[in-house]
Design a protein around this nucleic acid. Structure first.
Length: 816
DNA sequence: AGCACGCCGACT
DNA sequence: GTCGGCGTGCTC
């Protein structure tokens, strides 16, 4: 093959054509990494997407510099997956490639400055920066731009370098450096060759009699080797045990008596304890497993709808075991790795070294190691967050998406938007493998698919050990207020119930899903509130840090003591945050140990681990927290969950607000009475007649989902339509406004009016100094979707023709 | 995404 | 007058 289409790690449309040099023609394959020149002098690592022979175009392709792999590093299923993602989520292949790969696998050239020796330096005629740079280069012959930044201001670097190039003192070069380095550990061994030559051990030992320490060291190593010939002797271990120094060791090495050697070590320690068998299933669980098996035989994927603590994990384990037994691999997706200890511990004990983890907390080198192990098929089971969808699986047989409703699967930590749950379904298809979605509160979309038997619905309605489900009670705040039975944000009833738990040494959870102490600090005199300087939002008051924070850009400001506008001293807080609820709780239950769990409290190192311990040991009596507390806290001693301000969960302007409220409340409720079956949930609201509370209270799945489906049908939301949100952003509002209007008009030229909403200002009109506009597309779900999507692409091409609008940043949120 | 080229404001 | 700002265009 003479030519190749290459995916570059850049946010550019499509692929680029390169010529395959003669000597690589035999070796090159689709999915390999190649080194290619691009632009002026930059060198990037690209991926071979396609190979072909005929090439006819006006430009002359450059040549591939080299191959980086002897075998494809991206399996063809992954390439298919990338292509699908690119067209479905309207993003460039290069962005996907960049997101998919650990950066150490993407070599990139770096610009270096080098000292030329052809001219003697005339130090008199140099300015300060030039002098610094040349002096630095006399010490170290090569420097990269970052290193230079340390002693020359950023904006003066280019000038300085150019001046010195003109004087022919220096030159610039591009250099590629291998980033990944295996971690190596030093070991020692007796040099047996030498021993054979010398013929006598005693002779050697006596030869060292004038160097007592060396003799001692030699004997120690010899001792260890005889003791256990199989076990390598770590250098650090020797130095730990005896009082030796490096020069003594060096002498022994010079005398060829001892050898030092290195072995590569995994950065990730895998479990090496005893392996355990998995537990027996209950009758109910066995039934669910056989349902799943039946579905798989019919080539159907599964939605496992198991109520909280029904033992979905057991069923996963069973299916994982089946898959592993048939020599195939498993991917288990979790929303966040840190909050799901239980499941990982159990799997570790069953599979030990065959289990791998992949998530955002790993360092880049650790990612590379997992990547390689997956590639070499050393891991049979991978537990990971959504970025593990891109690992180079070879033989995937099963994908499990746990807590499939979780919004973390749609998190926006990548440049492009994608839903990991839906993507997993496609990935499963490309690998011809099966998939299980699991949740106690499935997303409406998955539930709808299941009802239509597009995926098989497998319910699991019994709590493990046949324990009772928690009981819900709705408390009318208005009524409590009129009867004067209210203390701050808590009704008397709520306080009594918590006291009851404290008496019985049981733990309680208080859910309040709003960060900070108060939503805003307001001046009573003039009404002034502090806005974030970068965003169009008011700043939230955090009492624990005693500062104002912007939850959108992270900007922080000191807490004002007087009004910044009228200098009045009458400042008041508005809107209750979780810190305030915590403070109030501590006041009311002064004897109790109260802890708070939210992103702010968990930011400190090991904060989560410490809190987890406290909860497990029963030291914490009352846990106050945001939605974070709905995940992973499976403790036996929690029996009460209270939600003092449940209305805040519902009146959010988002068509999914009620669905989320239902999921959150049900998930938190599931923490209560897991063993005793005495779980109790108290929900305080001003609107006890709101249907959502009635539905949550009854926990009748069909009723709840029918209600949601009705609402969505009425107002045309998913799953009845497909949504695409176009976000447009720019620093200049007028330009953005013009561009948005233009895009709106182009879209309306091709696509029916009723499918297009906007453009309009986003609810938060400015984030991080970027103004935000949005256009919402509601496309039909039938065959027309594809047609409309093509019309959208056509509109975008037309929009792109206006060069002035190229600087407008656009994001597409497909199925957001 | 980077990098070069080209046209307008604030400084020696 | 120049230096340096960023708006624009291009990269196989």
């Amino acid at each position: 093959m003479n030519f190749a289409q290459i995916i570059l790690p850049l946010n550019l449309k499509g692929t680029f054509t390169y010529k395959v040099p003669e000597d690589l023609m035999e070796k090159i394959e689709v999915g390999m990494r190649v080194l290619i020149p691009f632009g002026g002098k930059k060198i990037y690592t690209g991926i071979v997407a396609e190979l072909f022979d005929e090439f006819e175009d006006s430009f002359v392709p450059k040549e591939i510099i080299n191959l980086l792999d002897s075998q494809p590093i991206v399996p063809k299923q992954q390439l298919e997956f990338w292509n699908w993602m690119s067209s479905y989520y309207l993003c460039n292949l290069g962005e996907i490639y960049r997101f998919a790969f650990p950066s150490s696998l993407k070599l990139e050239s770096e610009t270096y400055v080098r000292l030329l020796s052809e001219r003697t330096i005339d130090w008199q005629n140099l300015d300060a920066n030039e002098t610094y740079l040349l002096q630095a280069l006399e010490v170290r012959q090569m420097l990269n731009l970052q290193e230079i930044e340390a002693f020359i201001p950023k904006k003066e670097i280019i000038k300085t370098i150019n001046a010195l190039i003109d004087e022919r003192y220096i030159s610039v070069d591009e250099k590629i450096t291998e980033k990944y380095k295996a971690k190596e550990i030093a070991y020692l061994r007796i040099n047996n060759e030498e021993l054979k030559i010398k013929n006598s051990l005693a002779e050697i030992i006596s030869s060292l009699k004038n160097a007592r320490k060396q003799q001692e060291l030699f004997l120690l190593i010899l001792d260890k080797e005889t003791e256990n010939p199989e076990k390598p002797i770590r250098k650090s271990e020797i130095f730990d045990e005896g009082n030796f120094n490096n020069s003594q060791l060096k002498s022994l090495i010079e005398k060829k008596l001892v050898q030092e050697y290195y072995l590569e070590k995994d950065r990730i320690d895998s479990y090496e304890g005893e392996l355990e068998e998995i537990e027996q299933l209950t009758e109910n669980q066995k039934l669910a497993v056989s349902e799943i098996n039946k579905a798989f035989q019919e080539d159907k994927n599964v939605l496992l709808h198991g109520i909280t603590s029904s033992g979905k994990t057991h069923i996963y384990l069973e299916k994982i075991e089946d898959c592993v037994n048939s020599e195939k691999n498993v991917l288990l997706l979790l929303p966040e790795i840190a909050l799901t200890k239980q499941i990982t511990i159990r799997l570790e004990k069953k599979y030990g070294k065959k289990l791998g983890f992949y998530h955002n907390k790993l360092t880049d080198f650790e990612r590379v190691e997992v990547w390689r192990k997956i590639k070499k098929n050393e891991l049979q089971i991978l537990i990971g967050t959504r970025n593990s969808l891109f690992l180079p699986f070879e033989n995937l047989g099963l994908i499990i998406v746990d807590e499939e409703h979780d919004s973390a699967y749609k998190s926006r930590d990548s440049n492009f938007f994608f839903n990991a749950k839906d993507s997993a379904m496609m990935l499963a298809e490309f690998y011809n493998s099966r998939m299980v979605l699991g949740s106690a509160t499935p997303s409406l979309e998955s539930y709808d698919l299941a009802m239509k038997d597009k995926i098989r619905y497998v319910p699991l309605n019994e709590r493990f050990g046949n324990v009772d489900v928690p009981k819900f009670e709705i408390i009318d705040v208005k009524e409590a207020q009129s009867q004067k039975k209210i203390i701050g944000n808590f009704s008397q009833k709520m306080v009594d119930e918590i006291n009851l738990q404290l008496e019985h040494k049981k733990q309680s959870i208080i859910l309040h899903n709003r960060r900070g102490y108060a939503n805003v600090i307001e001046c009573e005199t003039c009404g002034h509130v502090t806005y974030c300087s970068n965003c169009d939002v008011v700043m939230t008051y955090h009492k624990s840090a005693n500062e104002l924070k912007c939850h959108y850009c992270g900007h922080r400001a000191g807490k004002p003591t007087t009004c910044p506008s009228c200098h009045g001293a009458n400042l008041n807080t508005k809107g209750v945050g979780v810190e305030q609820i915590e403070e109030e709780t501590q006041k009311i239950f002064s004897e109790a140990e109260v802890d708070r769990m939210d992103v702010d409290a968990m930011r400190k190192k090991f904060a989560y681990e410490k809190l987890y311990e406290k909860l497990e040991n029963g030291e914490t009596d009352i846990l106050v927290g945001t939605q974070m507390i709905s995940k992973g806290l499976d403790f036996e001693n929690i029996e009460l969950v209270v939600i003092p301000k449940a209305d805040a969960l519902i009146y959010v302007q988002d068509f999914r607000a009620e669905e989320r409220a239902y999921q959150l409340i049900t998930q938190v409720a599931g923490r209560a009475g897991r063993v005793s079956g005495e779980g109790k949930i108290l929900i305080q609201t001003y609107n006890p007649s709101h249907s959502i509370f009635e539905l949550i209270k009854n926990q009748n799945v069909k009723e709840i989902y029918d209600y949601f489906l009705d609402e969505r049908k009425k107002f045309l939301y998913p799953p009845f339509v497909k949504l695409i949100m176009i976000e447009l952003k720019h620093r200049k509002e007028d330009k953005l406004n013009r561009a948005s209007q233009f895009l709106g008009s182009v879209l309306r030229k091709y696509i029916p009016e009723e499918c297009i909403l906007g453009p309009e200002k986003s609810p938060i009109a400015r984030i991080n100094n970027l103004y935000q506009y949005q256009i919402l597309l509601k496309f039909p779900k039938n065959k027309n979707y594809k047609i409309y999507k093509e019309l959208l692409s056509k509109s975008l091409e037309e929009f792109d023709e206006i060069t002035a609008y190229k600087s407008i940043k656009r994001d597409f949120l497909v199925d957001f």
